[in-house]
């Protein structure tokens, strides 16, 4: 929408607002650029005791490796510490969490948007309370039963738990997306002789994709970014990227291999960066979807 009524702002105000945006951009982007640049240096540069500008010029990196850039951190993380295993685990976990969350969520969200009975309200309120629950409180409930059932430490358990934890949010979001799809659409299909499920299958599914894609992005982010669940429920061998980075902190800080952790952090940020690059519009619309409905 063009702000036609926008009056001409005074140049001083414009200048001030522009400066404010620039300051914010620097605050938002600088830490990532700095860490990306620094990940190709040696520790004596990135954490320079002598002069911070070494991290830019790479004095020590040139001394130690002969070149201003080194991939030693990446080699250490990916090959030596086998970060690739964690990357594969992350791929498996996020893929299944997104697929299963969306399947359950579309069915449930559709039902919630089409039913007019009182219990839908209570289900949504229960989901809101569940959404507010700190994840780690649930973990303390999982551990003992999972030890007893002997399912602790493996990927499927974590996937199921992440799906469940993701459900309240997925339900809310898809519920509000389905409310935007006119009821007449599936009701007329049912008048024409479809069952409820056929109406869902043939009429609703073809038009629901924008909402599902947006919700899927947020399911992905939840599974990808989770630390509390994955660090507590996965054994050392099955760790995904984020808990792996967490355990790097314990071990590498001592051995003086902080640069492994720095390289791993940059590697784990890259997919998120690409995600925002391609799906910026969906992410923005997803963030505001809940808000506009109130």
């Amino acid at each position: 929408m063009e702000n036609t009524a926008q009056p001409r702002q005074s140049p001083l105000l414009r200048l001030f607002l522009g400066a404010f945006v620039i300051i914010w951009i620097v605050l938002a982007a600088f830490p990532f650029l700095w860490t990306l640049w620094g990940s190709f240096k040696v520790e004596a540069d990135f954490f320079s005791k002598v002069d911070w500008s070494f991290a830019l010029s790479g004095e020590r990196t040139i001394e130690q490796t002969g070149s201003a850039f080194t991939g030693a951190g990446y080699y250490g993380a990916w090959v030596q510490e086998e970060f690739w295993r964690a990357a594969i685990n992350t791929m498996i976990v996020t893929f299944f969490v997104v697929i299963i969350s969306l399947t359950l969520g579309t069915l449930g969200g559709y039902a919630l948007s089409r039913s007019t009975f009182r219990y839908t309200f209570w289900i949504l309120i229960a989901a809101l309370v569940f959404r507010a629950m700190p994840h780690i409180t649930l973990v303390s409930g999982y551990l003992l039963p999972f030890f007893e059932l002997n399912v602790w430490g493996i990927l499927p358990t974590t996937i199921v738990v992440l799906v469940a934890i993701n459900q309240p949010f997925t339900l809310w979001m898809l519920h509000s997306f389905f409310l935007n799809i006119p009821k007449d659409l599936d009701e007329s299909a049912m008048v024409d002789g479809c069952t409820r499920f056929q109406a869902f299958r043939h009429v609703i599914i073809p038009v629901m994709w924008p909402g599902v894609i947006t919700t899927g992005l947020f399911s992905f982010l939840l599974a990808y970014n989770d630390f509390a669940i994955t660090t507590m429920l996965l054994s050392q061998d099955n760790q995904t990227m984020v808990p792996k980075i967490g355990s790097f902190l314990g071990t590498t800080q001592v051995q003086g291999n902080v640069m492994f952790a720095v390289a791993a952090v940059v590697s784990a940020t890259a997919p998120l960066f690409i995600l925002v690059l391609f799906f910026q519009r969906q992410i923005v619309s997803g963030l505001t979807a809940g808000a506009v409905k109130g």
């Binding site: 039913s115 289900i123 303390s140 409930g141 469940a164 459900q167």
Partner: peptide, 23 residues
């Protein structure tokens, strides 16, 4: 409604409500 919501509700009951009981 029951059949549509069942999978999702089951997941929440088993892995959110039940763990609270366990806690």
């Amino acid at each position: 409604f029951f059949w549509f919501i069942l999978p999702s509700a089951l997941a929440m009951l088993l892995f959110i409500a039940l763990p609270i009981v366990s806690v």
